[in-house]
Nucleic acid binder design. Structure first.
Lengths: 207, 207
DNA sequence: AGCAGGTGTTTTACTTGTAAAAGATATGCG
DNA sequence: CGCATATCTTTTACAAGTAAAACACCTGCT
């Protein structure tokens, strides 16, 4: 259950949560969607940004407002998402292995699983050992190339992922429900755009 | 340098990177910004989503398209961001500690640092030990309440963070440069909205 | 005063991840 | 054929993180 980190930084991020004013918000849809009421709510990243600006009045903090928020959202969502998995006694990385096997619909080699789940081969080896001890997956060697193994879900593994995955999706839907439908679509599209750039640039060529 | 994870999952995420078509994109601004050329590029999350839809034709994959992308972006950005820090021999969590001290402008107790950086007290204890062994911070006990310690940057620590933080920001700016100015502002605003909801719901009350 | 209970920090025991090396095969080329 | 080199997976040694317990110290109440 451990090592489910929860990073949150951006250029020295973290945050407090005090203060009140308004600062790095934008035009279009922003923090002004609220009917009338109480002053603009502030996320923790905005507070951090303000602190940095007080220290270095001239810096351009735009990157922090995106990257800091991505990291912080990832951390908070992971905490929330972990709940359904915890109940099933699975870690997220383990869940990802089962998910990869389920959604591809066929056997995978450890190397393929590593690529599918963006983890190191060594980490996958460990996870596979545990998952097979729990009877959720099985492995057998390739007959042609005896270096490679093939991994597949057992019936139990398949049942488990099929039971948990919908719970997981529901959980996520609730977590995102603070954003309306349009907001969600816009956010997904923007993140997709960014991701394409990042994967092209930083991600492996991955033919 | 270790334990700088790099999670990427959403409900059994991970991804391949094959396939080509188009699927879960949205209206408004999307993957159609390219002048003419080659078919719509696809991020890895879109491919995963398609795989799931092939397996369970009726599921609503909307949450995956946001959360999966947030996680994947976070993982890729962290890799990239780590570069400048690595050169300085700092891990991200260590950098966050220095950043918190620098941006608040005053001494912090270990507990405050833990809150600022969203980490556990135990983790902070370890980081402080290392940072002080490297001469970047110093600590002294509170005279009133001898349980508490006060931590402050040394001159060396301050010089280090002041040198690295701008590099870090530049790095981040480049990483985000695939998105135009409007896209960045919209993204920051939407993430801020989401974050406010998440922090209100999942984050500690944090008065 | 004296103690029950709370708070700030560190320690302990253990889990998991990583990098690099080791194993075990495959493959290509002279 | 036979070796050098590349590939797939696992092992090894080690670095952090976590939860829970241990410490050390305050505070308030009787």
């Amino acid at each position: 259950m451990t090592a489910a980190n929860g990073r949150a930084s951006t250029t020295g991020s973290g945050s407090a949560g005090r203060t009140a004013a308004d600062a790095g918000t934008t035009r279009g849809r922003a923090a002004d969607g609220a009917p009338a009421g109480r002053g603009p709510v502030d996320d923790t990243v905005a507070a951090v940004v303000r602190q940095w600006q007080a220290v270095h009045p001239h810096i351009d903090t735009a990157p922090m407002e995106i990257i800091g928020r991505i990291n912080r959202c990832a951390a908070l969502l992971q905490q929330a998402e972990d709940a359904p998995l915890r109940r099933a006694g699975l870690t997220r990385p383990e869940f990802d292995v089962l998910g990869a096997l389920r959604r591809t619909g066929h056997e995978l080699t450890p190397g393929e699983i590593a690529r599918e789940t963006f983890s190191s081969g060594a980490a996958v080896t460990k996870r596979l050992k545990q998952l097979s001890e729990r009877g959720l997956i099985e492995r057998h060697g390739d007959t042609r190339d005896r270096r490679v193994a093939h991994v597949h879900l057992t019936d139990a593994g398949r049942d488990l992922i099929d039971r948990i995955q919908p719970e997981q999706l529901s959980y996520e839907r609730i977590a995102l429900s603070g954003l309306d439908g349009d907001g969600q679509q816009d956010l997904a599209a923007l993140l997709g755009e960014l991701l394409i750039q990042l994967e092209g640039r930083l991600g492996a060529p991955r033919g």
